[in-house]
Amino acid sequence: MITLPHYLTVSAALFTLGLLGVLTRRNAVNVLMGIELILNSANLNLVAFSRFGPGNLQGQLFAVFVIVIAAAEVAVALAIVLTLYRLRRTPNLDEADFLRG
């Protein structure tokens, strides 16, 4: 019998894997992939709660907005990463160190 905590466990695994990607990767595009994993885990949570919990659609609508926002955010982030590559010839985050004190 598949219950709510099963879905929550999958989503927690996605969340921690996304966090691991954000923390360890050097490449900016790869860090963005980790962020997408985190957003997907939250979406999975919302849909699972909507299915097993009160039965309203608020969670699913929230998830739709999250998807839209994720698309906008990735577009802006990639524009910034492309500018970084144009200016520095590298997509690696630890080589962007001008602002080091």
């Binding site: 997408e36 849909v47 699913q60 839209v68 698309a71 990735v74 577009a75």
Partner: peptide, 25 residues
């Protein structure tokens, strides 16, 4: 989970939009 609209949205926007954008990146 019975969220058919969201599944379609996920495929259209994430796979069709965001993933292609990331590949461009």
């Amino acid at each position: 989970l019975g969220a058919d609209f969201l599944a379609a949205t996920q495929l259209l926007i994430y796979v069709g939009g965001i993933l292609v954008l990331l590949l461009f990146g």
